[in-house]
Design a protein around this nucleic acid. Structure first.
Lengths: 340, 340
DNA sequence: TTGAAAGCGATACCAT
DNA sequence: ATGGTATCGCTTTCAA
């Protein structure tokens, strides 16, 4: 029957053996033909290529991976994709990886608790390496080391078990912002932090508070959010209800935008005249005409490039030691903070 | 040397043979042990599991894929991830796929021209199926059919070569919006469309224009954008400079937000009193306090669920015919359009 | 229930 | 330059 014939055809759409038969050569010859630096006579190669094209043959990457122990796949693990900041990172990473001939196996966590299941899959799929923007326990980090899977942390760091990481330091950008606001006369600061268990969130908050302390401001009120717009909005409500403020420092842009909207629309405050608001990340919406947020932009391009370079170095040499690569952000003046 | 020993250990971290040796059974037994519905004695199983745990053994998915001809990987191909709408879709898809025990091989296109290279990789990696939110030529569609790779189009359709697809129809939502604005007295409409070669963009624009025609409004001015904020912003400038308007219909939310900002900040228009603006998609920023865009939200949850169901149906039965599944969006009244 | 053995589709070494 | 052959790590009959 036609149907059977079709599905038969379909299920085995060309292996190197089929190509070999068609070209009248050995299977080895076909294999060589698709490997760079092959040693195959021009005439033979032509016949093989022709046969391959007629069949629509493509080497089976799964089989290649099995024998070469190189899957040419890299796992990208991201904690919450819906965070406006990550799509840009993800796009950049996949783009760069694909230029290097490597495919992305994506894992998006809904909850951090899923990470063990994800790692289980990561081991099964024999990825050559992983770029992780999620919290890893020391045991989980050790597992990467034990299995010899290259690993680069993105905007996370590990202190117990050292690992390669690239991140954007909050401190430098923060210093600029805080100092600028202090110089401009701001004196009632508040901070909107991330969840207590978020390393990035804590680092940012601490950076700001420390700098403020150095400038003579202590007991800075703080509320925590979860990096979402709504949480920033609500945190601002709590802060502004608690007392007058003239500056809010948020741990990321989206919370800053929520805070701005709360201040403007619900408290009728003029920004930046009555209240300065600053964020961190440099996501696109923060620069929309209604916001023009004063913030620090993470150099995503350079950070992803670095992450990938580090990853490949470690794929090539699994014994390469840990290395932290720190980038500092670029100040985007915006129009939501009084800066001197 | 210790180094050599380590890397030796590392490179072969447990195969089923190692587990078998350790448990004193055959390799087949180990394999069965990890397959549901295995036929293995409880005692044996216990020994095997123990040995496997000690070694941190995980079945090699690559090898499994080779023999079973099932990679348990699905390709997700998305044209531009930076479009605010896609991260949500992607997150939803990966989540649902992983629940089904399937991994996502992600391909993010920078330019539609990259699609051929992407498909080349898709064939090599033996994915079980693909969900594609990008433009495919008839030849490319045919290739999926020829190779028996299950395919579901997401928010794209194919008319020349029929294929399974799920999309959100603009028409229904559009009708609500247009009729509402007409009833509320709007009478000078304009449209901001997507690129001319975008199928979704065209459908949305045509839906709106047709409905307006039915209501007695012809020669609707139109400008095209590329779905980005800036393009919406600029399009609004061109439209508003060309003549007075009291309603702008944009092909997506982000352009609508750009248009709003242009109208408010550069033309000093009150929204919705002087100008109604509506979008399409239902992205999160559109509901931020500064915007509260009147729009139609795509039922992403239902759409992704449907896409995945259709995909699995086609993985299980490659001969299943094409099917279009159309969803209609939910009106989000918002506060940027006068609706009766 | 268990083990032996034949593949899956490639690579790579070894002769020729 | 080419072909033969032994893997890679697993699944899956087929006997025992």
């Amino acid at each position: 029957m036609a149907g059977d014939e079709n599905s038969a055809l379909r299920s085995r759409r060309g292996t190197s053996y089929d190509v070999a038969r068609r070209a009248g050569v050995s299977q080895s010859a076909v294999s060589r033909c698709f490997r760079p630096g092959a040693s195959v006579a021009p005439a033979t190669r032509a016949r093989i290529i022709a046969a391959a094209n007629e069949l629509g043959y493509r080497p089976n990457a799964i089989a290649q991976g099995l024998i070469t122990r190189r899957s040419n796949m890299v796992a990208v693990i991201i904690s919450n994709l819906t965070n406006l900041y990550y799509p840009e990172v993800l796009a950049e990473l996949t783009q760069r990886l694909s230029e290097r001939g490597v495919r992305v196996l994506l894992f998006a966590l809904k909850a951090e608790s899923e990470i063990d299941d994800v790692l289980d899959q990561v081991w099964r799929y024999q990825v050559d390496g992983a770029i992780v923007a999620a919290r890893l326990s020391p045991e989980q980090l050790a597992a990467f080391h034990d299995r010899g899977t290259a690993l680069v942390l993105y905007n996370r760091e590990s202190h117990e078990v050292p690992a390669a990481s690239v991140s954007c330091e909050f401190a430098a950008g923060e210093t600029m912002l805080v100092d600028g606001m202090v110089a401009a006369g701001c004196c009632r600061f508040a901070v909107i932090g991330g969840p207590a268990d978020s390393a990035v969130g804590e680092a940012r908050v601490n950076g700001a508070i420390e700098r403020l302390g150095r400038a003579g401001f202590d007991d800075i009120p703080m509320e925590r959010g979860d990096f979402s717009y709504d949480s920033g909005y609500r945190a601002a409500h709590r802060l502004l209800n608690a007392g007058p403020l003239d500056a809010i420092i948020a741990a990321n842009d989206v919370m800053a935008l929520g805070a701005m909207d709360a201040a403007r629309h619900d408290f009728g405050l003029d920004i930046p005249e009555q209240l300065s608001v600053v964020g961190f990340d440099g996501v696109a919406p923060a620069q929309w005409r209604s916001y023009r947020l004063t913030t620090v932009r993470q150099p995503v391009q350079r950070m992803t490039a670095a992450a990938i370079t580090m990853l490949f170095e470690r794929i090539d040499d699994p014994d390469l030691g840990p290395e932290r690569r720190l980038f500092s952000g670029d100040l985007i003046p915006g129009a939501t903070a009084r800066l001197a």
